[in-house]
Design a protein around this nucleic acid. Structure first.
Length: 387
RNA sequence: GCUGGGAUGGCGGAGCGGUCAAUCGCACCUGACUGUAAAUCAGGCGCCCUACGGGCUACGGGGGUUCGAAUCCCUCUCCCAGCA
């Protein structure tokens, strides 16, 4: 199901191929986020031209939207999304954090600023499962139910249910959550009846001993692949050396022949650091969310299309870009600026097409560099170009 | 010409004696965004300063009343509606 094609001589980076029932994914690859069974603002027919290989949808959101009855009669994500390529679903584990500790602590999973005002924690975690307080009544989700829902959704690759900890959790709580996640991992495996590939998730927060312990434990279970999740402390995402160091705590303990997915990390620096540390796939909201917010990515970094100085620009978003928006549709920065200013729904779509293409294209270039033994050179040039 | 109603910061539009450099919306400027409760959120938006704070000039023009006026009175200019 996973094949390592080439390894970089000077790092843990590797070129690979992830096989699924809906086709192969050439790795390293970006997994585009389509939480509610759609990449926000895009139409199914937009996807092929964005070089998208694989999309991840979300168990929690779809479960809440469809309900038990809807899930019982569900015809599957592939049909629903009009996407015949590979799909993943997240287990709903991340919502345990984003609706729980993240709100209570006023932080994201990467802390680099001071905490924001705390909000009400909508989550109650127990040994057996998690209570989510949504709009009205409490909903209960656990490992078995998450797997059942993911089987009903029918993605090619599914994830174990986990409890990511907050960067502000101390060692003791992080350990408690990690050990609970380990038990849920075993239960997730036990619960699965389908032939879908199931990934286990390594936790352990920002603590080296816990990360190592978690990786070692999860690696002993018969998962098809491994996700690395949770919070990363202030060092992750900033300097690449710190990123490498944190991934270096876990990846060496994972089986070399199985795929490794870095959950929810996807800035350019993170990608290079992750690839270098041996990550095969990444998923991240950055390309799609930032597109909707007017932040467009180019090889030289991102810029804000909403800025007044773009209004009169007749330039393409990125003159080096071959995406449909830049190359085929002839959309200029001024055009796109005006669409954003006018709140034209097409603005988000065009920006999303561009950003998604940009990240997928970047991965393709990384793969090409790996194939030619030129990863280090490409990495250096790319990071330098960023600023 | 008469009779009413208006003129407030880039625009719209609150305020109707002090807590008003002036609610709010739009526009504009900054900054965030990392397994999506985000097509979102946060901050700024008269001028000047050693900016927690302080000083100027301001609510169509001019003149009054008052300790104090965007708010009350007189007058001028312009706009709108109705009547001639």
């Amino acid at each position: 199901m996973f094949e390592v094609l080439t390894k970089d001589g000077r790092s843990q980076a590797r070129l690979g191929r992830l096989k699924t029932e809906h086709g192969d994914v050439e790795t390293p690859a970006y997994v585009i986020v389509g939480t509610n069974a759609a990449v926000r603002t895009l139409r199914p027919e937009d996807l092929p031209a964005t070089k998208t290989q694989i999309i991840i949808a979300n168990t929690y959101h779809l479960w809440r939207e469809l309900g038990d009855e809807g899930l019982d009669n569900y015809h599957g994500l592939h049909a629903e999304m009009e996407w015949n390529g590979p799909l993943m679903t997240d287990s709903g584990g991340f919502q345990v954090f984003s609706m729980g500790a993240a709100r209570e602590h006023g932080v994201g999973k990467i802390t680099k600023r001071e905490a924001q005002a705390p909000q009400e924690n909508l989550i109650r975690v127990t040994e057996v499962g998690v209570y989510f307080r949504g709009d009205e009544e409490e909903e209960y989700l656990d490992a078995e139910l998450s797997i059942k829902i993911q089987e009903q959704l029918g993605a090619d690759i599914i994830f174990a249910f986990d409890e990511p900890s907050s960067p502000l959790h101390d060692h003791a709580y992080t350990q408690t959550a990690m050990e609970r996640t380990h038990r849920w991992a075993a239960r997730s495996l036990e619960a699965k009846t389908s032939s879908q590939q199931l990934y286990g998730i390594v936790q352990g927060g920002r603590f080296e001993d816990l990360r190592t312990q978690s990786a070692k434990f999860i690696a002993t279970l018969p998962f098809d692949g491994f996700g690395i999740g949770g919070s990363f402390g202030s060092s992750f995402g900033g300097e690449k050396t710190a990123t490498l160091r944190e991934l270096a705590w876990t990846i060496p303990h994972l089986p070399a022949g199985k795929p490794r997915h870095l959950l929810g990390m996807g800035r350019i620096e993170d990608i290079f650091a992750g690839v270098e540390a041996g990550i095969d796939t990444f998923d991240c909201v950055i390309p799609t969310r930032e597109a909707r917010h007017g932040a467009l990515w180019t090889a030289r970094g991102r810029f804000d299309i909403l800025k007044g100085l773009e209004a009169a620009s007749g330039e393409p978003i990125d003159d080096a870009c071959a995406c449909p928006v830049c190359a085929d549709m002839g959309v200029t920065r001024g055009d796109l600026h005006a669409r954003f200013r006018n709140k034209d729904p097409e603005a988000g779509r065009l920006a999303t097409i561009h950003n998604v293409y940009f990240f997928n294209d970047l991965m393709e270039k990384i793969r090409a560099a790996l194939a030619q033994g030129a990863f280090q050179t490409f990495k250096m040039h790319s990071l330098k170009a960023l600023s």
